[in-house]
């Protein structure tokens, strides 16, 4: 474990807590893409298959349980909670995430480090996570009103993977054999997808104005 990975995990945890706070306290999911939340639930479900078979550490197991529990409960809230579901803008959140899932599955079957069920699922979860934010970014472009919590959520979600990139550089420099192009490239693509959001978010924060994404 290194400081980059730990801060990356904490940033990721913060993003999930910010989202749960928004949904649980103000009972609203306005501006949040259910498609992205479903993709993240799929990411954790396919990445943490070995949660009970391969024990890494107490920290690792606890964090996996937290990410699984929070991602599925957010999907549940947005789909079934009688008040929260009313604030979900179904008409705007129309991204067909199946068009993201299928190519990721095909790519994971072709490009992976080992053709085993667990490894292909792990690789699939990496590819899906790389593109999972797309429905959310599309929704932000459409709905002009990006409230603070949503902006903070997306920012933290993007920042965690940027910190992971520093973690991979650190591990590459300090550990022999630590070379994993698939992880690195999908992590880089994921972070780059946030590039323009980061640009507008930091500018709006510096100029102390509301976050507006160009149409």
């Amino acid at each position: 474990m290194n400081i980059f990975r730990l801060s990356g995990d904490m940033t990721h945890l913060m993003s999930v807590i910010v989202l749960l706070l928004k949904i649980h306290t103000i009972k609203s999911c306005a501006g949040i893409s259910l498609k992205t939340q479903e993709l993240y639930a799929l990411v954790f479900a396919t990445r943490y298959l070995d949660i009970f078979t391969d024990f890494v550490s107490v920290y690792n197991t606890i964090m996996k349980l937290i990410f699984l529990a929070t991602s599925f409960s957010i999907v549940w809230y947005m789909r079934h909670h009688k008040i929260v579901r009313r604030s979900y803008d179904k008409e705007q959140d129309t991204f067909r995430h199946l068009f993201l899932i299928l190519p990721c599955l095909i790519l994971a079957l072709v490009v992976n480090e080992k053709f085993t069920f667990k490894e292909v699922m792990w690789t699939f979860s990496l590819y899906v996570e790389a593109v999972a934010i797309l429905p959310q970014l599309v929704l932000l472009q459409r709905t002009k009103n990006i409230d603070n919590l949503t902006g903070q959520y997306v920012f933290l979600l993007g920042a965690y993977r940027a910190l992971y990139i520093l973690n991979w550089i650190y591990r590459y420099l300090t550990e022999k054999h630590f070379v994993h192009w698939i992880t690195w490239i999908s992590g880089l693509v994921q972070t780059l997808l946030y590039a323009d959001f980061f640009y507008y978010y930091i500018n709006s924060w510096k100029n102390n104005v509301r976050l507006q994404l160009p149409a």
Binding site: D54, N60, E113, R171, H177, F178, H180
Partner: peptide, 10 residues
């Protein structure tokens, strides 16, 4: 083994 060293990440 080597393959699993990065499966220690979340």
């Amino acid at each position: 083994d080597i393959m699993d060293d990065y499966h220690d990440e979340l």
